[in-house]
Amino acid sequence: NQASVVANQLIPINTALTLAMMRSEVVTPVGIPAEDIPRLVSMQVNRAVPLGTTLMPDMVKGYA
Protein backbone atom coordinates (compact mmCIF):
# COMPACT_ATOMS: atom_id res chain seq x y z
CA ASN A 1 0.00 0.00 0.00
CA GLN A 2 1.10 3.50 -0.89
CA ALA A 3 1.86 5.81 2.03
CA SER A 4 0.48 9.33 1.75
CA VAL A 5 1.38 12.66 3.35
CA VAL A 6 -0.76 13.44 6.41
CA ALA A 7 -0.82 16.65 8.47
CA ASN A 8 0.99 16.17 11.80
CA GLN A 9 -0.66 19.33 13.21
CA LEU A 10 -3.13 22.02 12.21
CA ILE A 11 -1.54 23.81 9.24
CA PRO A 12 -3.01 27.32 8.82
CA ILE A 13 -3.84 28.65 5.34
CA ASN A 14 -0.82 30.04 3.40
CA THR A 15 1.65 28.34 5.78
CA ALA A 16 4.92 27.10 4.25
CA LEU A 17 5.26 23.39 4.97
CA THR A 18 8.08 22.02 7.12
CA LEU A 19 9.09 18.41 7.80
CA ALA A 20 7.65 18.66 11.33
CA MET A 21 4.17 19.39 9.92
CA MET A 22 3.98 16.19 7.86
CA ARG A 23 4.03 12.46 8.44
CA SER A 24 3.67 9.39 6.25
CA GLU A 25 0.66 7.13 6.67
CA VAL A 26 -1.25 4.57 4.62
CA VAL A 27 -4.70 6.12 4.20
CA THR A 28 -7.76 5.97 1.97
CA PRO A 29 -8.20 7.85 -0.25
CA VAL A 30 -4.55 8.10 -1.28
CA GLY A 31 -3.15 11.64 -1.23
CA ILE A 32 0.23 13.10 -2.14
CA PRO A 33 2.78 10.22 -2.07
CA ALA A 34 5.03 10.15 1.00
CA GLU A 35 8.16 10.15 -1.17
CA ASP A 36 7.24 13.71 -2.23
CA ILE A 37 7.65 15.04 1.35
CA PRO A 38 11.11 16.58 0.57
CA ARG A 39 9.59 18.37 -2.44
CA LEU A 40 6.73 19.77 -0.31
CA VAL A 41 9.03 21.54 2.17
CA SER A 42 8.56 25.33 1.84
CA MET A 43 5.50 24.97 -0.43
CA GLN A 44 2.37 26.70 0.92
CA VAL A 45 -1.04 25.21 1.62
CA ASN A 46 -3.99 27.06 0.06
CA ARG A 47 -6.43 26.17 2.86
CA ALA A 48 -6.33 25.29 6.55
CA VAL A 49 -5.38 21.62 6.94
CA PRO A 50 -6.60 20.01 10.19
CA LEU A 51 -4.47 17.53 12.14
CA GLY A 52 -4.69 14.06 10.61
CA THR A 53 -5.89 15.30 7.21
CA THR A 54 -4.41 13.68 4.10
CA LEU A 55 -2.72 16.27 1.90
CA MET A 56 -4.18 16.22 -1.61
CA PRO A 57 -2.41 17.74 -4.64
CA ASP A 58 -4.96 20.59 -4.88
CA MET A 59 -4.22 21.68 -1.28
CA VAL A 60 -0.59 22.66 -1.98
CA LYS A 61 0.24 25.69 -4.13
CA GLY A 62 2.48 24.75 -7.05
CA TYR A 63 2.32 21.00 -6.43
CA ALA A 64 -0.29 19.76 -8.90
Results as ranks from 00 to 15, higher is better:
N1C: 13
N1K: 03
N1D: 15
N1F: 15
N1H: 06
Q2H: 12
Q2D: 15
Q2T: 09
Q2E: 15
Q2M: 12
A3D: 14
A3C: 04
A3F: 09
S4T: 14
S4F: 03
S4Q: 02
V5F: 01
V5P: 01
V5S: 03
V5M: 02
V6I: 12
V6C: 03
V6P: 00
V6M: 08
V6A: 05
A7Y: 00
A7L: 03
A7I: 06
N8H: 10
N8P: 02
Q9C: 03
Q9E: 15
Q9T: 15
Q9N: 09
L10N: 14
L10Q: 11
L10R: 05
L10A: 09
I11W: 00
I11S: 00
I11V: 14
I11D: 01
P12A: 08
P12I: 09
I13H: 14
I13P: 07
I13S: 15
I13G: 10
I13Y: 13
I13N: 08
I13A: 13
N14Q: 11
N14Y: 10
T15A: 10
A16F: 09
A16K: 07
A16Y: 13
L17K: 00
L17V: 05
L17Y: 00
L17N: 01
L17T: 00
L17D: 02
L17G: 01
T18E: 09
T18S: 11
L19K: 12
L19C: 13
A20L: 09
A20G: 08
M21D: 06
M21T: 05
M21G: 03
M21A: 08
M22D: 02
M22V: 12
M22E: 02
M22K: 00
R23P: 02
R23Q: 09
R23C: 07
R23L: 12
S24N: 07
S24A: 12
S24M: 05
S24F: 08
S24V: 09
S24G: 12
E25H: 04
E25D: 15
V26Q: 08
V26Y: 10
V26R: 02
V26G: 07
V26W: 04
V27C: 04
V27Q: 05
T28Y: 08
T28R: 02
T28M: 06
T28S: 15
P29H: 14
P29T: 05
P29N: 11
P29W: 03
P29E: 14
V30P: 06
V30S: 09
V30E: 15
G31L: 01
G31P: 01
G31Y: 02
G31E: 01
G31A: 04
G31T: 01
I32D: 00
I32A: 03
I32W: 02
P33A: 09
P33W: 06
P33N: 12
A34H: 13
A34W: 09
E35N: 12
E35Q: 07
E35H: 07
E35D: 09
E35G: 08
E35P: 07
D36P: 00
D36Y: 08
D36I: 05
I37F: 03
I37G: 06
I37N: 02
I37R: 14
I37Q: 10
I37A: 10
P38Y: 06
P38H: 12
P38R: 04
R39C: 06
R39T: 05
R39S: 06
R39I: 13
L40N: 00
L40I: 10
L40C: 04
L40D: 00
L40R: 00
V41E: 06
V41K: 12
S42M: 10
S42R: 04
S42E: 07
M43I: 05
M43Q: 10
M43P: 01
M43L: 12
M43F: 10
M43S: 13
Q44N: 14
Q44F: 09
Q44I: 10
Q44V: 06
V45W: 00
V45S: 12
V45L: 08
V45T: 13
N46K: 13
N46L: 10
R47S: 12
R47E: 13
R47A: 13
A48C: 05
A48R: 07
A48D: 12
A48L: 06
A48H: 12
A48V: 09
A48W: 04
A48Y: 12
A48T: 14
V49C: 03
V49M: 04
V49W: 02
V49L: 09
V49I: 13
P50Q: 15
P50N: 14
P50D: 14
P50G: 04
P50L: 14
L51G: 14
L51N: 11
L51W: 11
L51H: 13
G52L: 06
G52P: 00
G52N: 14
G52Q: 06
G52R: 04
T53H: 13
T53Y: 08
T53W: 13
T53I: 08
T54S: 04
T54D: 00
T54L: 07
T54I: 13
T54F: 02
L55V: 09
M56P: 02
M56K: 06
P57R: 08
P57V: 07
D58C: 15
D58Y: 06
D58M: 14
D58N: 13
D58Q: 08
M59E: 03
M59K: 02
M59V: 07
M59N: 04
V60R: 00
V60P: 01
V60A: 02
K61T: 07
G62R: 09
G62L: 08
G62I: 03
G62T: 04
G62K: 07
G62D: 11
Y63A: 05
Y63M: 06
Y63Q: 07
Y63V: 07
A64T: 15
